[in-house]
């Protein structure tokens, strides 16, 4: 009997040690990656990053055109993805709940959520870049929008699902029409969560590189022309990191830090906003 108990306690302790060791290993990896990023990124950080253009080989410069290009691409993508995603999420929770069509769309949306992002690049290449005959900012934004839409749909639906039905019923009882109930009751109650979803989808597409490789491509010069190839941080980082020039590699690290800090800021803001909204209730 004693031997059995001892064996059971031993295997329990053994499993515990393994589980804690695994957790420590993963946290150590995270710390390693973050400290590399912070060290390399800050060593290359300088104010001229925001004022100078990306340099030709062997010269120093900044990231101004890539930063502006990235803002433009992500902004246009969200301009399209936000209404489409919110309306689709509205259908799933407000109109189609429980129907066969809604569950199919939800299923497809969940699959799209995890689809390899490079496929979005190929898809947009086929339908926009190839027919128009040139890489363009529009194509880059379209590829990013394809990735952002499922994120917005998902969070919108989840957040609308949290709105208690009694609130909708109260509005219906006053004679409000369906669209009125959705706009003035459901959206109002869920707006903080929905905003969070939009911020998170921006965070999701801000660092995407693969879908931009064959759509927006890159551009060494200042350009805000969406009809031709446009500079952007992710592709710039990819090209500069793969090159042997130390100046270029330093710029790539600075860009990488910039993107990660942006993503981090977005997730912190959405977290804080969501928490303060929860405390109000």
């Amino acid at each position: 009997m004693n031997a059995v108990i001892r064996r059971r306690h031993f295997s329990n302790a053994f499993a515990r040690v393994l589980i804690i060791a695994a957790t420590i290993l993963v946290v150590a990896m995270l710390i390693w990656i973050c400290s590399v990023l912070i060290y390399e990124g800050f060593s290359a950080f300088k104010p001229t990053l925001f004022t100078e253009m990306t340099p030709p080989p062997g010269e120093s410069g900044g990231l101004a055109n890539a930063i502006v290009g990235s803002f433009l691409l992500v902004g246009v993508a969200m301009l399209f993805a936000t209404p489409v995603g919110i309306l689709a999420g509205t259908y799933l929770n407000e109109y189609g709940k429980g129907t066969w069509l809604a569950s199919t769309i939800r299923f497809v949306n969940d699959v799209l959520l995890a689809k390899p992002s490079i496929l979005a690049g190929l898809f947009i290449y086929e339908i926009i870049v190839a027919p128009m005959g040139s890489f363009s900012g529009w194509a880059g934004s379209a590829a990013l929008a394809v990735i952002a839409i499922p994120v917005v749909v998902r969070t919108t639906e989840d957040m609308l699902n949290l709105v208690p039905n009694s609130m909708r019923e109260a509005a219906y009882a006053l004679g409000a029409s369906r669209s009125k109930v959705i706009l003035s009751v459901s959206y109002r109650a869920a707006r903080v969560g929905m905003t969070t979803g939009i911020l998170l989808s921006v965070a999701r597409i801000a660092g995407e590189t693969a879908p931009l490789l064959f759509t927006a491509l890159n551009n060494q010069f200042w350009s805000t022309d969406m009809t031709s190839s446009i500079a952007n941080l992710p592709v710039m980082i990819f090209q500069y990191a793969m090159n042997p020039y130390p100046d270029w590699q330093a710029l790539a690290w600075a860009g990488a830090l910039l993107i990660t800090l942006t993503i981090l800021a977005l997730s912190i803001i959405s977290r804080v906003v969501l928490r303060s909204a929860n405390e109000q209730h």
Partner: peptide, 17 residues
């Protein structure tokens, strides 16, 4: 949060690291 952070780091940074 640490696990979420690991998921939020862009793919390209894993490549460089």
């Amino acid at each position: 949060i640490a696990i979420e952070l690991l998921a939020a780091i862009p793919s390209i940074i894993y490549g460089m690291w």
